[in-house]
Simulated scan of single mutants.
Amino acid sequence: MTIRWGILGCGEAAEVKSGPALRQVSGSQVTAVMRRDTSKAEDYARRHGVGRWHGDAGALIGDGDVDAVYLATPPHMHLEYGLEVCAAGKPLLVERPMGRNEEEAAALAGAFEAARLPLFAAYYRRALPRFAKAKEIIDAGVLGTVTSVHYRLCHPRLHWAPDPATEWRVRPEVSGGGFFVDFGCHVVDLVDFLCGPIDEVSGHVRSGPGGLPEGDVVMSFRTASGVLGAGAWCFATGMRDDALDIVGTRGRMRLRIYWNHRIELDGDFGSRRLSCPDPPHVYTPFVEEIVSALADRPTPVGSAAAAVRANRVMDTVLGRKAEVR
């Protein structure tokens, strides 16, 4: 069985991350693409050997040669287009975050659940080798009982003074927030994957230069299994730092979310360094899992329920609703 994908929004993500995987994974092919600028949709299609292109979302969703849709627009269009895909009776893979807030994400998840259609959110890092290996290490008890999680990210995104006119990620009406929503959702989802769902969370937020959203964000949390955690994101800096520490009764595991593929283990078992490089196209393991799931083989990646939880946590940290309990 081959899944014939239609890509709705063939921009940057579809160019360098997801598109190559959707085209190259066994059992998967891209048969149509859409972009409002039809000339750009045609250019993408011609360069990547895709036979059909559209300038209208409805045309792609209704295309008889499309079995499933990959929705790669900014978050403000996820609910509207997602509901159209649902009404057409087709599975959907939607970019993350699944909505601008929990309400949108839950509405989309509820529609697909009611229609008994597959819905996946593109939290592709769950399937990358180092995070799959980290899950294996935790589940095998190498760290003992996991007691705490600590994350920090320093990134000069706001230090570069992005222009909201061209950078939609700092326009809350489009993205749902700022760079915390864009970067932080991956971390929230990985904590959910590695240590279980977060059921208590609180946070503090400070604006960046010129009032841009989410210059500094800190959060503290507890998972349903009792793991305590904290995270800090700073986007108004001139340096880079990225570290996820998972601490247990026997030792610590350190991973990098973005810039390093190594796992560092230290504890009563000694010190180990494991190299887990990314594949050439980072979506490849994730797309393999999604194609498997569409063939009725369960997968731990792309969970719509986990994507709704990620939006709920971020809403709480950003003060958009009462503390999660």
Rank of each mutant, 00 (worst) to 15 (best):
residue 48 H to D: 03
residue 48 H to M: 01
residue 49 G to S: 12
residue 50 V to W: 10
residue 51 G to Y: 02
residue 51 G to T: 15
residue 53 W to M: 02
residue 53 W to E: 03
residue 54 H to S: 07
residue 55 G to R: 08
residue 56 D to G: 00
residue 57 A to Y: 04
residue 57 A to N: 00
residue 57 A to I: 08
residue 58 G to F: 02
residue 59 A to E: 14
residue 59 A to Q: 07
residue 60 L to P: 10
residue 60 L to D: 00
residue 60 L to Y: 02
residue 61 I to F: 07
residue 62 G to P: 13
residue 62 G to Q: 13
residue 65 D to L: 10
residue 66 V to F: 06
residue 67 D to K: 05
residue 67 D to A: 08
residue 68 A to D: 04
residue 69 V to N: 03
residue 69 V to W: 01
residue 69 V to E: 03
residue 70 Y to S: 11
residue 71 L to E: 03
residue 71 L to M: 07
residue 71 L to R: 09
residue 71 L to Q: 04
residue 72 A to W: 04
residue 73 T to W: 01
residue 74 P to I: 03
residue 74 P to E: 12
residue 75 P to T: 15
residue 76 H to D: 14
residue 79 L to F: 06
residue 80 E to C: 01
residue 80 E to F: 06
residue 82 G to R: 08
residue 83 L to D: 06
residue 83 L to M: 11
residue 84 E to H: 12
residue 84 E to G: 12
residue 85 V to K: 05
residue 85 V to D: 01
residue 85 V to L: 06
residue 85 V to C: 01
residue 87 A to L: 04
residue 87 A to K: 14
residue 87 A to Y: 04
residue 88 A to H: 06
residue 90 K to E: 03
residue 91 P to W: 02
residue 91 P to I: 08
residue 92 L to P: 07
residue 92 L to V: 11
residue 93 L to H: 07
residue 93 L to S: 03
residue 94 V to L: 00
residue 94 V to E: 01
residue 97 P to D: 09
residue 97 P to S: 10
residue 97 P to Y: 13
residue 99 G to E: 06
residue 100 R to T: 09
residue 100 R to W: 00
residue 102 E to A: 14
residue 102 E to S: 02
residue 103 E to T: 15
residue 103 E to M: 11
residue 104 E to C: 08
residue 105 A to P: 05
residue 105 A to N: 12
residue 106 A to S: 15
residue 106 A to P: 04
residue 106 A to R: 14
residue 109 A to R: 15
residue 110 G to Q: 06
residue 111 A to V: 08
residue 111 A to H: 10
residue 112 F to G: 03
residue 112 F to K: 09
residue 112 F to P: 00
residue 113 E to A: 10
residue 113 E to K: 13
residue 114 A to Q: 15
residue 115 A to E: 02
residue 115 A to K: 10
residue 116 R to M: 02
residue 117 L to Q: 02
residue 118 P to I: 13
residue 118 P to F: 14
residue 118 P to K: 12
residue 118 P to Y: 14
residue 119 L to W: 14
residue 120 F to T: 09
residue 121 A to F: 02
residue 122 A to M: 12
residue 122 A to Y: 13
residue 123 Y to K: 04
residue 124 Y to N: 06
residue 124 Y to R: 11
residue 126 R to T: 15
residue 126 R to V: 12
residue 127 A to G: 09
residue 128 L to P: 01
residue 130 R to Q: 13
residue 131 F to D: 09
residue 131 F to T: 06
residue 133 K to P: 00
residue 134 A to D: 01
residue 135 K to Q: 14
residue 137 I to E: 07
residue 137 I to K: 08
residue 138 I to F: 14
residue 139 D to W: 02
residue 139 D to S: 12
residue 140 A to V: 08
residue 140 A to M: 02
residue 140 A to N: 15
residue 141 G to K: 10
residue 142 V to A: 10
residue 142 V to G: 01
